Simulated assay, not measured.
Amino acid sequence: MPISNNIYFKIQEVAKILEVVPATIRNWEQNGFFKPKRSENGYRIFDQHDIEMLRKIKNWSVDMKMGTQAVKMMVDSYNLNELKAPSENALTKSFLSEKWKESRQSQNKTIKEVAEAVGISTSYLSKIENMQVNPSVEVLKKIADYYGENVLYYLSTDPEETSQLVRKDQRVRVVDKNGGLSIENLLNQNNSRLSFMLYTLQPGSKRPTLQPHSGNEIVFVLSGKVTFTIGEETVYHLEEGDCLSYSSKENHGWCNESQEETQLLWFYERIA
Rank of each mutant, 00 (worst) to 15 (best):
I7K: 08
S205V: 02
K112L: 07
K10W: 09
S245M: 10
Y146S: 02
S103N: 03
E217K: 07
Y147P: 00
E29S: 07
N256C: 09
Y153R: 06
N27E: 08
S245A: 13
N59P: 02
Y43K: 14
E217W: 03
G204W: 06
V172H: 05
S156A: 10
Q69R: 10
K225M: 13
N89R: 11
I143V: 09
S77W: 12
N31H: 13
Q30W: 01
D176V: 07
E161T: 14
G119V: 05
R270E: 11
A15W: 02
K93G: 07
S4K: 06
S87T: 11
K65W: 05
E52Q: 12
M53R: 13
D47T: 02
W60H: 10
M74R: 14
R270A: 12
L238H: 04
T229M: 14
I17S: 01
I218A: 08
V151N: 04
T209P: 01
L198R: 15
R38T: 06
V133D: 00
K112P: 01
A23D: 12
F34N: 07
L264M: 06
S245L: 08
Y43G: 09
E149T: 02
K65R: 11
A70N: 10
S123P: 02
K206V: 04
V226Q: 00
Q12H: 12
E232H: 13
F196P: 01
H237S: 14
G179W: 03
S103H: 02
W60Y: 14
S94G: 09
W60C: 09
A90S: 13
G42K: 08
K206W: 06
F9S: 05
D76C: 05
M197Y: 05
V75M: 06
H252E: 11
P203N: 01
D176I: 07
R173E: 15
F228D: 09
V20G: 06
L238D: 06
Q30K: 13
N150A: 03
Q30P: 00
N31D: 12
V71S: 08
F267P: 00
L198Q: 15
P36S: 03
M53S: 11
Y236T: 10
T209W: 00
S163K: 12
N190W: 07
L18T: 03
T229N: 14
Y8S: 02
V62W: 03
E261I: 14
K249L: 13
G67S: 10
T162W: 04
Y199T: 00
L187W: 04
K56I: 05
E52V: 09
E160M: 11
L125M: 06
E129G: 01
M73F: 05
T229L: 14
N185V: 01
R207F: 01
